[in-house]
Design a protein around this nucleic acid. Structure first.
Lengths: 240, 240
DNA sequence: CAAAATCGACTGGTATGACCACTTGACCTC
DNA sequence: GAGGTCAAGTGGTCATACCAGTCGATTTTG
């Protein structure tokens, strides 16, 4: 039995999670007023500063609007939240949401090849050592979850090489969504992280400055998982 | 002289802005320890809860790491921040950062056509009324800044129709970056928002369910601004 | 009677002070 | 050198008091 570090959760963190989950789950609907800070503190059995801290963070996440003198109201997170919300949407109650997973894989399939292309154009040979190290780490590790981690490192280098702050920050958010879901996604991703030769080919295209080749190789690497998930979703929908 | 509403800024907001700017500008470097909450409160002449609230928000934004018992340390925002940071990077000190603008336009050019394609496939005729209303609003408004706002509404509908939570949340973040920069970008975007016929054609392709046509029309609409900016950046780099 | 002003209740915003929980480095013991 | 203890400093939490703003009900004014 592997002992895990015990992460102590702060009071505002707990409050933040509760409010966030209630907004995302629809318990609180857009336009609705939340209970006052004082009331929430009473109901939750915590201090008002803790509630306040949590609420300011929920506001920063785009899920509520706080105005002095008036109740805090709920916003439509689909219109106001950022990609930071993705982890909550991907794993509500610890189970994978198929439409969110689909959406992530679709975006990945669009962005990955473009990022690979930009890395080939803008970084090329400078990425060689880091990419080959990451490929070797993928190859050396038999565990599919750990392979996914190494693959994220591989893509981290590529995104760096793409020299685009937007894709860099997007990657951060997508990785943050992905990491808690590595286990749930392991079956879907196993084929992908087993194709070490494709990773190596992609690395070669990028470091060789072959933008078209990199684009195609990234697509070849990423497409199967998206296809597999779409197929699985379709089969689920065909069940009676 | 137009009188503007005075937005009262809260103390934690001011503190948050200062710390964020100092991290993004490099005043505080990754790994470095920030002054303690008590010290910051003293130096800034505010209460410790205000500092604490601001710091927890800076931590949520991915720019610092807060651990009980130890100093708060600065993280590399390029590795840990999300797209929420984009407004700060696009307009540091009120002036457009060309490489960030380029990065945004590149991403837009990649994602826009795909989102248009998905909207054509998944929403089609259901978007007609809203898209035509937005096109009419663009056409009816002579002011280029206001036209950009209407264009954002136009794209908001398309992103809704794409039925992808990832692209939906991405759009929120990109819009948040874009909105404060509407004025600065007006010259670059003027040609684009003047092409009402192209907006109308794109709306037609989407509502007609023509995915390929929508993809192409979106590309035709979005590409010129990216090209113009790349040209302008190249010319800037060629100056002695 | 309608518009404007006032008022009270409630909301969020801010500060002070006290105390708790944790980390880290210095120092001591074996 | 390894392990334990301690003190100082860090962040975490709470209670209390008061300030600033919003909104609806009520009153006043024209």
């Amino acid at each position: 039995m592997a002992l895990q570090p015990v992460a102590r959760r702060s009071v505002p963190d707990e409050v933040f999670d509760q409010i966030l989950d209630d907004v995302v789950s629809g318990e609180f609907t857009p336009g609705e007023a939340l209970p006052s800070e004082r009331r929430l503190a009473e109901v939750l059995g915590v201090s008002r500063p803790a509630v306040r801290e949590a609420l300011q963070r929920v506001a920063q996440a785009g899920l509520v609007e706080v105005r002095q003198g008036d109740s805090t109201t709920v916003r439509d997170y689909r219109r106001h939240a950022s990609l930071d919300l993705l982890p909550r949407l991907l794993l509500p109650r610890g189970e994978l949401d198929p439409s969110v997973a689909r959406s992530i894989l679709e975006a990945r399939l669009l962005i990955g090849p473009r990022v690979a292309r930009l890395a080939a154009e803008r970084a090329g040979a400078r990425l060689e050592a880091r990419l080959l190290t990451a490929v070797a780490a993928i190859e050396a590790d038999p565990d599919p979850v750990a392979r996914q981690r190494h693959a994220l490192v591989f893509w981290d280098h590529i995104v760096d090489g793409a020299d685009s702050i937007v894709f860099r920050l997007m990657f951060n958010s997508l990785r943050a969504a992905y990491e808690p879901a590595l286990g749930a996604l392991a079956t879907l991703m196993a084929n992908e992280v087993d194709q070490v030769d494709v990773y190596r080919a992609l690395a070669g295209r990028i470091t060789g400055g072959d933008a078209d080749g990199a684009d195609r190789a990234a697509h070849d690497l990423l497409a199967p998982a998206t296809d597999a998930l779409l197929t699985a979703i379709r089969q689920l929908e065909e069940l009676p």
